[in-house]
Design a binder for these strands. Structure first.
Lengths: 340, 340
DNA sequence: TTGTGTTTCGAAAACGTTTTCGTGTTGAAA
DNA sequence: TTTCAACACGAAAACGTTTTCGAAACACAA
């Protein structure tokens, strides 16, 4: 087991100073050709690699960014990480992943912990609890310390920083309009409770579409689901008690669950009921029938977020406080769960 | 924007030495009650947090572990990360995620990069390319430097280190036996090419089960799929040209694809064909019909891997070169794609 | 010989900690 | 008055780098 070799050790072996070794390795002209050769050969022989931690301390840059997400099991968040990782890697950055588990406390602890030098910046999507509490002090604090933050997907207006979002209202409006255009009127909505920002926005989009087509909003057709609860029977009730022609679900899980329950109740998809989901994950793709869905490109979001963060990190000099919010295009992916 | 405060600054403000500040904050009895109070109050006021990088440099510990996986989009790997992250967090460690994209080079570059001080240890699952090349020098090198490595799932016998695996042969044997016990004999296998370690092992298990039940192995019923290719038509051929009663697929994607194609060909699942998959992901769960599957608990694997790594990190003193291989139990989760 | 310039290198500071060891002050015991 | 311990604190080294600045050595011209 050969331990890592340091500048000091090389210097001692070759009987020169540490500075000489350092300069030689960086090919400084200050050092004679001869010495440089000698040092470089020796360093190569012993497989010298500069210690990253020491460099970080000196440069006050860790070349590491942290992404904080509520859950990694959700396919969407996994794709975002993938996007972040690739762009980060291309630019010489590493990615630290933190899971908040939808918990405010974990989010706070992680941020405070890492803000003390460990990383150069954050990419994050708010936990449900944080959105509910509307307590963002940990984020403002980090930003005030001069550490850049990029928020994506679950964002808040109360924080000024770079953001990457999709136009949830518009996307939901489109999806609902798509159903209406097929001649469907009794469209149910399966959504989350309002404090989840994207759930609220998608609900708004749904309502907007109905209104602009002069369809009355029937609150009985709107099912708001708490995240923690077992929601199968609510959906079952919804389907049984109403003569529904279509369902718009604000996430994949709701969509596929609705599909399964509809099946169970003897309804044919899409003949009896059309279904549109949100977030183009593998469930929608491989479900039978496959589910028409609003696709939000996680890889793209992650990539853009990483790019924004890195851009800000590398131009820190010009201190441009112009925060940008970038809107990623969504796409309606038509599959088997909606009629032609 | 108030920058981070350091010991030096506090020392200067209070007109004491850096040592005094440091000791006061650590509540050393060397320092008078008075001074301690004063320093602590000041530190709290200015929200002092020790710089992690400086600590890392001093302690030669980063409290960060790295997990290298081929892909994060695969649900199984995402669950592993989840397991790793939770255990790591409980023990005060952070998790750096690297994606090899199944590429040997990326794996090598990432490892070499991070081995220079950035992290304390690795958890990894080999990329396909690495398994194919059988070149593991980057891993032995890291281990020789004294950095612990824990391998999981896709491992190799050529490296001596801690490992977390499932008994792929046994699990595949069980699954196949399960089908046989239902009275099914014409059992097709959809697997990967042999250099993927787990694919090979699962194939072995399948064959073993057939043999022990005196069923001839029909190579026409064994489909080996290259990862990169578009494999739908191969499966279609397999199903068309043979009178198949059951399918055992070595991963979820193969299983659900087979299911969809069987459906397309007018076969009923499970009446005409029973299907068992491997890896209990969301696809199997939400597919219609849902797919019976061999469940490998990724969260558990990740958690165990993290535990093993951290244990080794924290007992480095006693230098026990006893490498362990832990086998995680699999479970056959019965769903709708197999007959009762 | 003196002055000037160039080449080559090393000392030391800096990044932010922790910790060892030394030292000055105080109080009490002899 | 002297001696010794206890107390309170600071200097400095250490972790591994990079970089600034100074200086030695040498060459060459005047």
């Amino acid at each position: 087991m050969k331990r890592k070799v340091t500048l000091k050790q090389i210097a001692k072996e070759l009987d020169v100073s540490i500075s000489t070794v350092s300069k030689s390795l960086r090919n400084s002209l200050e050092i004679s050709e001869d010495t440089r050769q000698k040092v470089q050969a020796f360093a190569k022989l012993y497989n010298y690699k500069p210690n990253n931690i020491a460099l970080s301390l000196k440069n006050k840059k860790t070349k590491t960014i942290c992404i904080i997400i509520p859950e990694i099991i959700h396919h969407f968040f996994a794709t975002v990480i993938s996007g972040v990782e690739h762009v980060a890697n291309e630019n010489g950055y590493n990615v630290l992943v933190c899971l908040s588990d939808e918990s405010f406390d974990k989010e706070v602890i992680n941020m405070e912990m890492l803000a003390s030098g460990s990383i150069d910046g954050f990419i994050m999507s708010l936990s449900k609890e944080t959105q509910q509490k509307k307590d963002f002090h940990h984020i403002t604090e980090v930003i005030n310390q001069g550490m850049p933050v990029v928020m994506f997907d679950r964002v808040t207006n109360e924080i000024l920083c770079d953001k990457i979002i999709i136009d949830d209202v518009h996307a939901a409006h489109n999806a609902t309009q798509f159903l209406i255009d097929k001649g469907l009127k009794k469209i149910a909505l399966i959504t989350t409770v309002d404090y989840v920002s994207v759930g609220k926005l998608r609900t708004d989009g749904y309502k907007k579409a109905l209104k602009s087509n002069d369809i009355d909003i029937n609150e009985n057709l709107i099912l708001k689901i708490e995240d923690t609860e077992d929601f199968d029977h609510y959906i079952e009730e919804l389907l049984q008690n109403n003569d529904i022609e279509a369902i718009f679900a604000v996430n994949e899980l709701f969509a596929v669950t609705a599909l399964k329950i509809a099946n169970k109740l003897g309804k044919n998809i899409p003949e009896d009921i059309s279904i549109i989901g949100f977030t183009d994950g593998i469930i929608s793709k491989y479900s039978t029938p496959s589910i028409t869905t609003v696709s939000q490109n996680g890889i793209k979001m992650g990539g853009k977020a990483a790019k924004m963060l890195i851009d800000r990190l590398e131009s820190e000099d010009e201190e441009e406080e112009q925060y940008k919010t970038e809107v990623i295009e969504t796409e309606l992916v038509e599959r088997e769960s909606t009629k032609n």
